[in-house]
């Protein structure tokens, strides 16, 4: 594992902690897209099917369990927690995310490394992760104002993707056989989706102003 990969995993972990902190400390999930959180739950469940078949390291196993557990916990809170669910922006979070699930699954059926149950589900999870942030970005854009913790959540998620790209570049030059083009292409698409958000985050940070996204 190289430093970029580790930094990516850590920013991913921090983003989840920021999200949990927001929900538990403020007992509110306003500004958070349930659609995006459900997509992440599906992404992790589909990708980590190998939990039962391959052991890579304690680190990998623990992180996988944390990602699955935290995404399901957030979905549970937003749907069922007596207090938290009241603040859910139901009327704004209307992205039809099941189309993304269907589209990504179809793509995975045709574009994969090998036609097997695990490889198809792995490719599906990679494609779905690339677009899973869309309902969240659209929700933020529609509501305009972004509270600090929600802004930081999305910022850390974007940073995680950026570090993974550096990780692939590093691996490309240091490992003999590193070709994971499905991850790399999807990862580039995913990171590009954050470009707009990064831009406005930077502007608001520079002006020391509250983050606002243009409608």
């Amino acid at each position: 594992m190289n430093i970029f990969r580790f930094a990516g995993d850590m920013t991913h972990l921090i983003s989840i902690l920021v999200l949990l902190l927001k929900v538990y400390a403020t007992k509110s999930c306003s500004g958070i897209s349930l659609k995006t959180q459900e997509l992440y739950g599906i992404v992790f469940l589909a990708r980590y099917l190998d939990l039962f078949t391959d052991f890579i390291s304690v680190y990998n196993t623990v992180m996988k369990l944390v990602f699955i557990g935290s995404s399901l916990a957030i979905v549970w809170c937003m749907r069922f927690h007596r207090v938290v669910k009241r603040s859910y922006d139901r009327d704004v979070d209307t992205f039809r995310h099941y189309f993304l699930v269907g589209g990504c699954f179809l793509l995975a059926l045709f574009v994969h490394e090998k036609f097997s149950f695990r490889e198809v589900f792995w490719a599906f999870s990679i494609y779905l992760e690339a677009v899973a942030i869309l309902p969240q970005l659209i929700l933020l854009q529609r509501s305009g104002n972004v509270d600090n913790l929600t802004g930081q959540y999305v910022l850390f998620l974007g940073a995680y993707r950026g570090f993974y790209i550096l990780n692939w570049i590093y691996r490309y030059f240091t490992e003999d056989q590193f070709s994971r083009w499905i991850s790399c292409v999807s990862g580039l698409v995913q990171t590009a989706l954050y470009a707009d958000f990064f831009y406005y985050y930077f502007i608001s940070w520079k002006n020391n102003a509250k983050l606002k996204l243009p409608a």
Partner: peptide
Amino acid sequence: VSEEDVKDEL
């Protein structure tokens, strides 16, 4: 080498 590529990333 296993038949399927072991995915070592998260």
